[in-house]
Design a protein around this nucleic acid. Structure first.
Lengths: 123, 123, 123, 123
DNA sequence: GTGGTCTAGACCACA
DNA sequence: GTGGTCTAGACCACG
């Protein structure tokens, strides 16, 4: 899995990592049981600090997307939790933005369907 | 239009304002040509710093959602720009999160349609 | 409020801080709305790093015991959450330990009542 | 006696073992004089490192909950020591957490009594 | 001036 | 060798 980090973004690096891992799991690129790089390896690969990498893993752990044991490093999991309020709020906002960009209901649904198919094609 | 600000949120105040204005325009609660309060008035009403209110308007102006006249007045308009990359990225992320929360394509599309109907009912 | 940190303890410093704040809130020493020192002030007072102090506040924030805004620093809150599983597990373990120390049911209940009265006397 | 280890927990494996043995003794599931598996056997059964198993036994021995013979054998005993400070501190913390979760004195005592009855029923 | 983020190191408990 | 913790600084967004 290849990370694409934007160091100039307002989005914290650890959040970018979290987002990309979430996306990768949803798309099937990362499968349950698969091992993620160690914090050290990730930090070196991505050219970031260990603590930043660690924080990303802690976020993912708190969401139930990975388990970080003392044995295996970080391992991918499928979380059991339902939809979180931030997810709903974010979705609502994006749909409003699409509406403002001139899209109608059908267009939006088509777009969402297309995104779903693209992202989850591998699964 | 009533602003609901959460001062404990991680989302910056100015961003909350921007989001709520965007949502209000999308829902038809705010209509093109309608005048928004001045920066000063908004700051007083909401109990926030003038710089914060100003920043929110700047954001909205940059997105083409308002036009700001000579003084502080801001007038609602419908932006002409298409869908922005952040919007697309955000939407993609939310859909991945829904997928990870266990929802299938049909459920997600249904949810999006429901949100659209709720938010844009007034228009 | 005075913090007593044991730098030789296995319990992480940020956890010690969290525990003492929780105890202080329960005892009424800290009241809702009361302001906690800034991370910088706390770090200096306690002779610890800013990030350690910050982590303690983040823990408390995640538990709903404080709100850390960009305006006021950290402010004490009464959390709305119910009893967490770790609390129950910890309580269960301690009761077993008391049993093993030779205490009977009545003695244990008396002890718990005494602790409650001591800790929550100020409230 | 069946160990239930959570390798994803933040609680160290050896501590989990210690806790469960303590609980088992308190509940009467393990009786004084009863033999525990050797370090080697325990490690194999539970799929853990021998050092981890050994550390758990060392903990229990230090607390007076087992006596270890010449080889690896460990025999259950009832400790003579009184209540340890960590136990008291932990109990105090849990009671504060319960208080913060909104429980009153009566509720807490009732809960403690219920836990006692459940855990120590077999004795 | 606040908390949030990040860096570049170090030490330690765990396994 | 892993992740967790901590330090001593720095920069930045927010207000």
């Amino acid at each position: 899995m290849l990370l694409r980090l934007d160091f100039n973004s307002d989005v914290p690096i650890y959040q970018q990592i979290r987002n990309q891992v979430v996306t990768a799991i949803a798309s099937g690129e990362l499968k349950p049981g698969e091992k993620l790089p160690t914090v050290r390896a990730l930090a070196e690969e991505a050219g970031i600090n260990m603590m930043t990498a660690s924080k990303a893993y802690q976020l993912l752990k708190a969401e139930g997307c990975v388990t970080t044991g003392r044995r295996d490093g970080a391992v991918v999991r499928i979380p059991e939790r339902g939809v979180s309020p931030p997810t709903m709020d974010g979705l609502r906002l994006r749909i409003c933005e699409l509406r403002l960009a001139g899209m109608g209901k059908e267009e939006i649904l088509e777009l969402c369907g297309k995104i779903f198919d693209e992202e989850v094609s591998g699964r």
